[in-house]
Nucleic acid binder design. Structure first.
Length: 271
DNA sequence: CCCAAGACCTGGCGGC
DNA sequence: TGCCGCCAGGTCTTGG
């Protein structure tokens, strides 16, 4: 479900409801996510105040005095503030009950998400330490993208989606950024010209920024932490539009599979 | 080291 | 209406 804009939208939606509040109980109805949810979580979090909610790539980091809960939403996960009186649904696997009555509820039909606990600094956790730079930070520059792409024979689209290169760019925004840059998704990353690398870095930033401003992309049932859908779907130029006319040249968009992911591009506009 | 494919899991959709 | 195959916002793991 979520790429960086949807995770960031979730973070911003949840923060005002949860910051500085104390956890009174954690209920895990189904611990079988990508990795088992630690059984000690209720014991560990009970009575602790939530100090901050940060994001690193597509991970949400819930900081407490004694450690950090790492939460990844996988493909179909969502976090929202729910009513205490609302009975949990079939795929509502986890609740955090806060002492003031606020309820945080995790919903994830496919269970590719993860909730883990670490007492080391989150940046040092195995899943976080090897991540590439944040795309919206000053670390992610045209020069960085260009240098990293040298000698890479991999198609630029799956390369762009590799979190070791840059975090947060998933299938939707990879398709969009490549269209905006006029780059064919199958082109070898190492064959990017300097000018193309410059365009691509700028467009990755632009599309992610614009999507965050719209509250993310709602395709099926994504809602941010405040329960509102995202409005970026209406601005997608290629994702989900295979066979439909290119918005720039009216030629039909081509759909192919690259690294087992649906890839849509305009053969006229993207070289 | 690099890259492609497989794996995890449920539900919705189109086609017959 | 029912069944079947395919597809879906991610990413760790395996194998060539």
């Amino acid at each position: 479900m979520p790429e960086l804009p949807e995770v960031e939208t979730t973070r911003r939606g949840l923060a005002p409801h949860l910051l500085a509040k104390t956890v009174s109980s954690v209920t895990v109805r189904n611990a079988q996510l990508r990795w088992p949810v630690p059984s000690e979580l209720d014991h560990v979090l009970k009575g602790q105040a939530l100090l901050d909610i940060r994001r690193r790539g597509k991970y949400l980091l819930f900081d407490f005095a004694e450690g950090t809960a790492l939460w990844h939403l996988g493909m179909s996960g969502s976090l929202r503030i729910a009513s205490r009186h609302q009975a949990p649904g079939k795929h509502d696997h986890i609740d955090w009950q806060m002492a003031d009555g606020t309820l945080l509820r995790y919903h994830d039909p496919r269970r590719f998400g993860a909730l883990l606990w670490t007492t080391e600094p989150a940046e040092q956790h195995l899943l976080i330490a090897g991540l590439g730079p944040e795309p919206l930070s000053d670390q992610f520059t045209a020069e960085y993208l260009y240098q990293r792409s040298r000698k890479r024979s991999q198609a630029v689209k799956p390369w762009l989606m590799d979190a070791k290169m840059v975090v947060g760019v998933g299938n939707i925004y990879a398709n969009e950024a490549l269209f905006m840059s006029g780059i064919n998704p199958s082109k070898a990353a190492g064959k990017l010209t300097r000018a193309q690398a410059t365009l691509l870095a700028a467009n990755v930033k632009q599309v992610l920024h614009a999507a965050i401003e719209r509250g993310g992309t709602t395709l099926r049932d994504f809602v941010g932490g405040d329960g509102k859908p995202g409005y970026f779907a209406q601005e997608l130029r290629v994702y989900g539009r295979g066979g439909k006319p290119c918005k720039a040249c009216m030629q039909p968009l081509t759909e192919v599979r690259l690294a087992q992911r649906s890839t849509v591009y305009c053969p006229g506009c993207q070289k």
